[in-house]
């Protein structure tokens, strides 16, 4: 039968295409890492890894250039810690409210609002942070510029919250109903049940939520570049400009010479970011799987 044979051939082709796409998607994972390595590792022909990571000065265009990313790491760390300090308690509390307390209708509306927040492009959040939050912080603390680590932390806290709230909310909702019924049956109030039983049972999932939120903050680029003032110095307070790893790449790649040491140094920063976020997400994934079991 001829049509039969044509169909077999067609299916064979389709299945091979599918297989090829599967292979491609794997190849891309490898390619991303390989290309970062290819461009970034040449830096370490003239520079030691220790000097790169713990070097205290980042002067990429002075002569000789200095490629120490410690100020950038500390800048990222400071902004991230600040953002976590704001977004974790608020985010977890909001997740508890949405999952356990809000009536059904309100719950759907709140979830849509959170989704909306997640969808706002980072450059728009950066823009708003820059022209509303910046001047406000400048006046509040009476400092020369409003573009500081604190401004960055507050802005980024809002970008971390949708991640934290939605994943923590999933984890809380996944706690078996029997836990709640058992606690209520023993005379606990709704709040005692929520806090002592449900929140405790959902802890691995909440931890994953926090890690993924932090992962997002570390990787955030545009907003942070627009609101932190971009001074590559070792920060001593929240009220001074800092520069993060991501902002450094975004701000300097345009002026670096392709193939030169500055270019390689920026790719090396990319490697650092890739490794950090891959690790954070990997660990978060482990926690998520544990909470599902």
């Amino acid at each position: 039968m001829k049509p039969m044979r044509v169909r077999k051939l067609k299916e064979w082709l389709i299945e091979k295409t599918i297989l090829l796409s599967g292979i491609f998607s794997v190849v891309f994972v490898l390619l991303i890492f390989l290309f970062l390595l290819r461009e970034g590792l040449s830096l370490f022909r003239g520079e030691s890894v220790i000097d790169f990571i713990f070097g205290k000065s980042w002067y990429p265009i002075s002569d000789p250039p200095r490629f120490g990313i410690l100020p950038l790491i500390l800048g990222s760390l400071l902004v991230t810690l600040g953002a976590a300090a704001i977004s974790v308690p608020i985010g977890i509390a909001a997740a508890l409210y949405i999952a356990e307390i809000a009536p059904l209708r309100l719950r759907e509306a709140l979830k849509a609002g959170i989704e909306l927040l997640a969808a706002i492009p980072s450059v728009v959040i950066g823009f708003i942070g820059m022209i509303t939050l910046g001047p406000w912080i400048k006046n509040l603390f009476n400092i020369p510029t409003g573009l500081t680590a604190l401004t960055g932390s507050v802005t980024l806290a809002f970008m971390a919250m949708p991640t934290i709230v939605s994943i923590a909310e999933d984890a809380i909702t996944a706690v078996p109903r029997q836990y709640r019924e058992a606690a209520i049956a023993m005379g606990a109030t709704k709040w005692q049940t929520t806090w002592r039983i449900v929140a405790r049972a959902a802890r691995p999932g909440m931890l994953a939520a926090v890690m993924l939120g932090i992962g997002r903050v570390i990787g955030e680029t545009m907003a942070v570049m627009m609101v932190t003032g971009n001074a590559a110095i070792i920060p001593t307070s929240f009220l001074q400009p800092v520069r993060t790893l991501t902002a450094t790449i975004a701000a300097e790649m345009g002026e670096s010479v392709q193939g030169g040491p500055h270019y390689a140094a920026l790719f090396a920063i990319g490697i650092v970011l890739f490794v950090i976020t891959f690790l954070i997400n990997g660990v978060a994934d482990l926690y998520l799987h544990r909470s599902r079991r």
Binding site: S25, V26, V29, L31, I32, F35, L36, R38, E39, L212, G215, R216, I218, G219, E220, T221, T246, I249, A250, M253, L266, F267, G270, L273, F274, T277, F278, I280, N281, G282, D285
Partner: peptide, 23 residues
């Protein structure tokens, strides 16, 4: 492979920019 792909969604967008520049 599945785990790597999930984690790839969390890699910072600026790193994708570097990758695009490189490749």
């Amino acid at each position: 492979v599945k785990l790597s792909i999930v984690n790839l969604a969390g890699v910072p967008s600026v790193v994708y920019g570097l990758f695009g520049l490189g490749i």
